[in-house]
């Protein structure tokens, strides 16, 4: 019998190294069902590595990741492919497929993974595009013809196309101007709300983190060193968090 308070995502003792560079050092993190958590941290601190371990693109060296109480680390490829259907991941650079039009990009997962008839998948894709504020004219365009903001919207539509219950966002506002960043953040909030999904975002954009998440966790030295409500991040009292949030040059975080 499952505990009602069991987190949607439970990460315990996560370790990941690349050669001599130990990126994650016993990271622990819980994300409750329906919660939106933003993991903040400087460049190169392992935020993307954490996200890739959660979704299974990277295999951790040690530690466990559980989804709804089921361990997903060390799954076979077949089981991993089946589990992927529960996730939607918005990539930092959108990662749209260059060789196919926008509509096929959004419908890709439905056709390829769920074996849905193409016509039905495209109807859903059009609906999802409308949800992120894009019309049918964009559907026939190729990714190379789109601006950065539009690419991000298309990628978001693709992320939510299969109605996943866990949404992962990798630096969703990187490379966007502040206005477009705000637009994308609002779309993300709406999508998470509409799907009643659990969301895990990694970012170093503090404004975005506060807008998107209920809770913020600070990744430093390969571990989560602080976690609390998003509204409290400015007054956390933790010197590392304070330095990062306020962008001070002097403090415990050393550059390089």
């Amino acid at each position: 019998m499952r505990d009602n308070c069991e987190p949607k995502i439970r990460i315990r003792g996560l370790n990941k190294s690349f050669g001599a560079n130990q990126v994650l050092r016993g990271l622990d993190l819980d994300v409750q069902a329906g919660e939106s958590v933003a993991v903040i941290g400087g460049s190169g601190t392992g935020k993307s590595v954490l996200l890739k371990c959660v979704i299974g693109l990277l295999e951790p060296d040690a530690g466990t990741i559980e989804l709804d109480g089921e361990t997903v680390t060390g799954l076979s490829k077949t089981s991993r492919e089946a589990m992927m259907a529960r996730f939607g991941l918005l990539f930092q650079g959108s990662a749209l497929f260059d060789s196919i039009p926008v509509l096929d990009n959004v419908a890709f997962g439905l056709v390829s993974a769920q074996q849905m008839p193409k016509q039905r998948a495209q109807a859903i894709a059009l609906d999802k595009l409308a949800q992120v504020g894009l019309d049918e004219d964009v559907a026939v365009m190729y990714p190379a013809e789109l601006s950065g903001g539009m690419r991000k919207r298309v990628a978001l539509a693709r992320t939510i196309a299969s109605d996943p219950d866990i949404l992962l966002f990798d630096e969703p506002t990187t490379g966007l101007d502040p206005i477009m960043g705000d637009v994308i953040d609002k779309l993300i909030v709406n999508c998470v709300h509409d799907l009643a999904a659990t969301a895990l975002t990694i970012t170093h954009d503090m404004d975005s983190a506060k807008r998107i998440s209920n809770r913020i966790a600070m990744l430093y030295g390969g571990r989560i060193i602080w976690s609390g409500p998003a509204v409290e991040v400015d007054t956390s009292g933790d010197p590392v968090v304070d330095q990062f949030v306020h962008g001070h040059v002097k403090g415990p975080i050393t550059s390089g």
């Binding site: 979704i55 990539f91 890709f108």
Partner: peptide
């Protein structure tokens, strides 16, 4: 190679599509 460095291969995986097959 371009698909690799622009994370399109990772995107295939997250869309439950095996890059080897596709």
């Amino acid at each position: 190679g371009t698909m690799r460095v622009t994370e399109q291969i990772d995107a295939l995986t997250t869309l439950s599509t095996n890059p080897f097959k596709y």
